[in-house]
């Protein structure tokens, strides 16, 4: 996983609540057995005017000119701004994979669905929670200023606006540590292998039926 320390980028506003994972990456693209290459199909049904197919060339497809990511001013965006309950629906990790593959490293919204929120951190994508009022203000500022960029400083848990004002944000300390260092948490958990074994032995004693081999 690529470490996330400090990042600055153009903000793309998606003024919509309950953006679900089916919308972020439609099901036909989940047939891939890889983790990469989902970027061209991010928001496929909103982004293109025709139906997307897996493994197809997307370069010649008709773009929906009204969709925010197709507008010239938001090209190269790295920060996605959205409304409440972002990432609801399915547990597909293809959603953060697609956002990342497209080039996003940060999402800002008032709230997230739990599984999406969790999946994001595992993939170097930072989901920041800000209150509705602040999110609303950001929508207005992004709309009014072409080329609006934010600096996301994870180390100091700060977002710096173009005028120099900063907005503090909260982040879980363990997740922050993993993101800053690009750590794989399987390795970290395996440091506790002895504790896991001890727990498991006790459980096997008390509830042996949980350990019957399924055939």
């Amino acid at each position: 996983m690529e470490p996330f320390v400090k990042q600055s980028g153009i903000v793309a506003p998606m003024d919509r609540a309950n953006i679900d994972t089916d919308m972020i990456i439609p099901k036909q693209f989940l047939k891939s057995i890889k983790r990469s290459g989902f970027g061209p199909n991010l928001f496929d049904e909103l982004r293109y005017l025709d139906e997307g197919q897996p493994d197809a060339d997307n370069s010649g497809r008709p773009l929906n000119p009204d969709f925010v990511l197709n507008q010239a001013r938001y090209q190269g965006a790295q920060v996605l701004l959205a409304r409440e309950n972002f990432g609801c629906g399915s547990s597909r990790e293809h959603a953060p994979w697609a956002l990342e593959d497209f080039g996003f490293r940060t999402v800002i919204a008032p709230s997230y669905a739990d599984i999406f929120f969790n999946n994001s951190f595992k993939n170097g994508l930072l989901p920041i929670v800000l209150d509705e009022e602040t999110v609303d203000m950001l929508f207005k500022e992004v709309e009014a200023n072409e080329g609006y960029e934010l600096i996301i400083d994870l180390e100091n848990q700060n977002i710096v606006k173009p005028n120099g004002d900063s907005i503090a944000f909260e982040v879980d300390s363990f997740r922050k540590h993993c993101l800053l260092n690009g750590l794989d948490d399987i390795g970290l958990t395996l440091q506790d292998a002895d504790d896991i074994k001890a727990y498991e032995d006790k459980r096997r004693q008390s509830s042996p039926w949980l350990f019957d081999q399924v055939k």
């Binding site: 983790r35 629906g89 399915s90 547990s91 597909r92 990790e93 953060p96 599984i115 969790n118 999946n119 595992k122 993939n123 948490d185 399987i186 958990t189 395996l190 506790d192 292998a193 896991i196 498991e200």
Partner: peptide, 30 residues
């Protein structure tokens, strides 16, 4: 799969996870 919540009907603690966590559970049982 997010619909893993289904199994909670049996007084089990059941929930959906992403693929990184599938790998985590395969490797560590935790």
């Amino acid at each position: 799969d997010s619909h893993t919540a289904t199994h909670g009907a049996f007084a089990a603690l059941a929930h959906g996870i992403g693929t990184s966590e599938v790998e985590h559970v395969l490797a560590t049982q935790c």
